[in-house]
């Protein structure tokens, strides 16, 4: 059974006013339990609008969002539970920090879920480890943190709720390179080892290509493709026509292929490229 099923989803902002704008058009797709999904599309293509439907922050103008076999809008009383099951890290999550200590901020979600105190504490520490946040910072005010630290705290607050589906909108902006790699690796383990569903929205095609099982490509509110990284990034012309570029290593290989047609351009990582180029040299 699909974890999430989207049926004929259309969303119109400010419906019925002169400013009405269709942000999503008739989207149909399924996301499996235990899947890592990437979402790509240029600014304004509908990525965030789509994501907000998955945890009931927006109600479809038309169509359905089905979670574990049930339309999430069938029982309005259950919406709260949908938000516990489907955790969302927003684009500028640090704007939502408001407690007096980092600890309380991270504990906010699990407290709301009514967990016992020792359980909450466990979740807070687990979330800090997940995000590579120094325990020393737990008793500081969130307003006395560096930019990257604030963002880590905001993400830890969602991780601490241990959601079944975790959606993250450009989560690594402002992370140093190692923290970024670590977060992506932890997300990989979250879905691989713990049977969760992870949905990552990002402009960074290298990360999307490396970690996703399948990629949702949106353009102007339409679903253009839903396929494996290899297949998606081999459609260069289509991607370019909707304002997207392949990962940098893929475009390097494509540039080389123009002069050396024997080379493969279906390459998504540096290691694959090293292997392909070394073999190419051997065979010359």
């Amino acid at each position: 059974m699909a974890k999430i099923e989207i049926q004929d989803l259309t969303y119109i902002y400010s419906e019925g006013t002169p400013a009405a704008k269709k942000a999503l058009s008739n989207i149909n797709l399924c996301i499996k339990k235990n899947e890592f999904i990437g979402i790509i599309g240029r600014t304004g293509s509908g990525k965030s609008t789509f994501a907000k439907h998955l945890n009931a922050l927006l109600k479809p103008t038309e169509g359905k969002v089905i979670l574990d076999g049930k339309d999430i809008w069938d029982e309005p009383k259950e919406i709260r539970n949908v938000r516990f099951k489907v955790g969302m890290v927003f684009q500028y999550p640090e704007h939502q920090l408001f407690e007096e200590t980092v600890y309380k901020d991270i504990a906010f979600g699990p407290s709301n879920m009514g967990l016992p105190k020792d359980e909450i504490e466990k979740k807070v520490y687990m979330a800090c480890e997940f995000i590579n946040l120094d325990f020393d910072l737990l008793y500081k005010s969130p307003f006395e943190l560096s930019g990257g630290e604030k963002r880590k705290v905001a993400i830890a607050g969602v991780i601490a709720m241990d959601p079944e589906v975790l959606i993250l909108d450009e989560p690594t902006a402002g992370f140093d390179p190692k923290s970024k790699e670590q977060l992506l690796y932890q997300l990989h383990c979250y879905y691989k080892n713990r049977g969760k569903t992870v949905i990552l929205i990002s402009h960074n095609m290298d990360d999307i290509a490396k970690y996703s099982d399948r990629i949702i490509v949106l353009d102007n509110g339409n679903l253009v493709m839903l396929d494996s990284p290899k297949r998606v990034f081999s459609q260069i012309d289509l991607l370019k026509s909707i304002g997207l570029e392949p990962p940098q290593i893929t475009s390097i290989m494509q540039a080389l292929k123009e002069e050396f047609p024997d080379l493969s351009d279906e390459i998504l990582s540096v290691d694959e490229a090293v292997e392909a180029l070394s073999n190419f040299v051997k065979n010359r």
Binding site: P177, K178, Q248, I252, V270, D271, A273, V274, S278
Partner: peptide
């Protein structure tokens, strides 16, 4: 120091 190298540098380095 928690840093990395640009993709192009990594490619040439590994080659």
């Amino acid at each position: 120091y928690q840093l990395s190298i640009p993709t192009v540098v990594e490619l040439i380095h590994k080659l």
